[in-house]
């Protein structure tokens, strides 16, 4: 049974949904960031799948490579902010950081 494009797209959709669920159901900031990483990974999977099936050129894979690098940059800044937040707040739970809500 040969593996067609829809297989990859379905897997990537499920992965995207998992990431979405992780982001929504977690209170811990680091876990939310992990969820976002998962969603980015799902998009990556799509890029590579499309580049393989649809277009002979490999723009898709290049795009995926850029996304990986960018996710790393974003994760670095995100974790730096989490650290800064932890220093100011003492805890890492997303809900407790509510001093802005007047």
């Amino acid at each position: 049974m040969n593996v067609g494009l829809p297989h990859f797209l379905t897997v990537s959709a499920v992965l995207f949904a998992l990431g979405l669920f992780a982001v929504m159901s977690r209170r811990n900031t680091v876990a939310i960031l992990m969820g976002v990483e998962l969603m980015l990974n799902a998009a990556n999977l799509n890029f590579v799948a499309f580049s393989r099936y649809v277009q002979r050129g490999i723009d898709g894979q290049l795009m995926a490579a850029f996304v990986i690098v960018l996710a790393a940059a974003e994760a670095a800044v995100a974790l730096a902010i989490v650290l800064a937040l932890y220093r100011n707040y003492g805890t890492v739970h997303a809900d407790t950081a509510q001093s802005l809500k007047r």
């Binding site: 995207f16 990431g19 982001v23 900031t29 939310i32 960031l33 976002v36 969603m39 980015l40 799902a42 998009a43 990556n44 799509n46 890029f47 799948a49 499309f50 580049s51 649809v54 277009q55 723009d59 898709g60 795009m63 996304v67 974003e74 800044v77 995100a78 902010i81 989490v82 800064a84 937040l85 100011n88 707040y89 997303a94 950081a97 001093s99 802005l100």
Partner: peptide
Amino acid sequence: SEAGFKYLLMGSFASAFLLMGMALLYG
């Protein structure tokens, strides 16, 4: 720092959606 944190969380969440849309568009 809380403002930056919230902004970043929303921003990366949004770019994940944006990326998924771009992947489909590319396809």
